[in-house]
Design a protein around this nucleic acid. Structure first.
Lengths: 131, 131
DNA sequence: GCGCATTAGATGCATGCGCACGTAAGTTCG
DNA sequence: CGAACTTACGTGCGCATGCATCTAATGCGC
């Protein structure tokens, strides 16, 4: 098999795995918790951060969203009461984003869903395949 | 490290790799050949197929698109003259999709771009990292 | 202090996507 | 044959995204 073909095969497998996972995540998170994958990602990062609040910029660095998409995702979360924005006093162009109590709770509810989806898709259980 | 954390880390790495690759592919294919990643995927599958024409359904099985998204992607390709649709005589609900000469040529032009992007992203060259 | 470039974030716009549904063709059962 | 069901594909709609651009705040040179 040529290197080209190996490369294409690798890419297809990557795309397959990503599509299967993101698709399942999107559906489960939406149906069971009313949030999308991007929104969960934001909430999850906030919940896992050392600080209680993060700058938009810090979020943008770790989430797979363009700056504009992140701005809108945070806007949606804010509309749903899961995060709140606060001005940054040091640099008044900046915006801090922090989880609300409702946001923390929603994250606590949704995280097990995410983990179980990940486990199911990334660790094809109940099979003897050594992968 | 807990299994949960390992799972989350694995998912993040998968998402990172996918995002980097698809993003670069999308940009390069668009800028240099005027087609998107999904459209290239369709053309690539057609070019690599044993038959000269495929049913929408066959395409839908291998491409990471919903049936409706595929329908529109093929419509775009048809508008650009890269594929043509033909009725299936055996099952007149069905639609065959085939590459045109222009489509074959565009594919021949775009494939090297795709391969070089894949090589660059999936095989982080000029580095001693063993992966 | 006053312009000018830069940076942080928001937004108009065009586009692609999935969902739900519509239409047409095939199939099944009586 | 004919009614009900299923399948294959197209389409209206709402939504999320990226790009380009806008606004506001900061910093820099003078």
């Amino acid at each position: 098999m040529s290197e080209d073909q190996a490369l294409a095969a690798e890419w297809r497998e990557l795309a397959n795995r990503y599509a299967a996972t993101s698709c399942a995540l999107e559906r489960e998170l939406h149906d069971r918790h009313g949030i999308g994958m991007s929104e969960f990602e934001v909430v999850d990062r906030l919940a896992g951060a050392r600080e209680t609040k993060l700058r938009m910029q810090e979020l943008a660095e770790v989430v797979h969203l363009s700056q504009s998409a992140l701005s809108r995702a945070v806007a949606r979360l804010e509309r749903h009461g899961l995060v709140c924005r606060a001005l940054c006093e040091q640099d008044r162009r900046g915006v801090f984003v922090a989880l609300t109590d409702a946001g923390r709770q929603r994250h606590a509810e949704a995280r097990p869903t995410q983990r179980s989806v990940l486990a199911e898709i990334l660790r094809p259980a109940s099979s003897a395949v050594t992968g």
